[in-house]
Design a protein around this nucleic acid. Structure first.
Lengths: 132, 132
DNA sequence: CTGTATCCTTTATGATACTG
DNA sequence: CAGTATCATAAAGGATACAG
């Protein structure tokens, strides 16, 4: 599995737009879009069917739900199961690989929680006109 | 779980496109773009001037370098220092807040390193025409 | 129910030339 | 050196209608 000792620190790698050379960017290319993490989080809870995701994730369109799920399945993060029933039923489940992604995402989420106020404050300071 | 924090798990929050209700998405809105993490990583190493970043980050345009830096400064992740010299010199430094972001990003990077092969394999399996 | 197909708008990013 | 300005393209996402 993962050999944590061979991890070359972020700062010692080539920095380029090419994901080949920059793994962080590679992940962000996958889950940095508008909906992927929301779906991953939902499926981290439990298996959901298409319509459940559609209802649970506020504001997503059928189109984007389908496209995002398709990409997640393609990357082996989510598994799609079709039940031959009437009406049709399709379940989406987080794979083992998908589950491992939950941890770093949670770390990022924790950071966001811990620092959202800092960011807002910085932004207001920045946007507010100078006033010695 | 540590009980010294009040972090509500990802799975227990409203899932929506609105960052107000979903902190993870809020971070991704900040650093999920094409260049932010690369700049953050560079500045995590040490202070850099504009031209150094321009040369070090392969493929970035002056326009995007400027825009991305501006956004990072606005959010309090990076500090901009102008030196009144000829020729002009502008330094960019990661703030304390910016440094705290390095950790979750490293976690994500480590995940990418550990699992990029899994993802590639899954993708090939998926793209390859069915064959038993 | 679980999607597709089409068309359209918005946002992100790039190329190039120019300036204090 | 450290940017801006302008124009152009690409990529992402949304609305709506329709289908197996």
């Amino acid at each position: 599995m993962s050999d944590t000792n061979t991890h070359v620190p972020l700062t010692e790698r080539k920095l380029t737009e090419n994901p080949e050379d920059c793994p962080v960017r590679e992940v962000l290319d996958r889950v940095g879009d508008k909906w992927s993490v929301l779906i991953i989080v939902m499926l981290g809870q439990r298996t959901h069917r298409y319509s459940e995701l559609d209802r649970a994730i506020d504001g997503i369109s059928q189109r984007m739900l389908t496209l995002t799920l398709r990409a997640l399945v393609r990357d082996g993060l989510v598994e799609r199961t079709v039940h031959a029933s009437v009406p049709p039923r399709v379940d989406y489940t987080l794979t083992g690989l998908g589950h491992t992604l939950l941890e770093p995402l949670t770390a990022l989420d924790r950071w966001a929680n811990d620092h959202r106020d800092d960011i807002r404050a910085a932004r207001e300071r920045h946007d507010r006109p100078e006033q010695g």
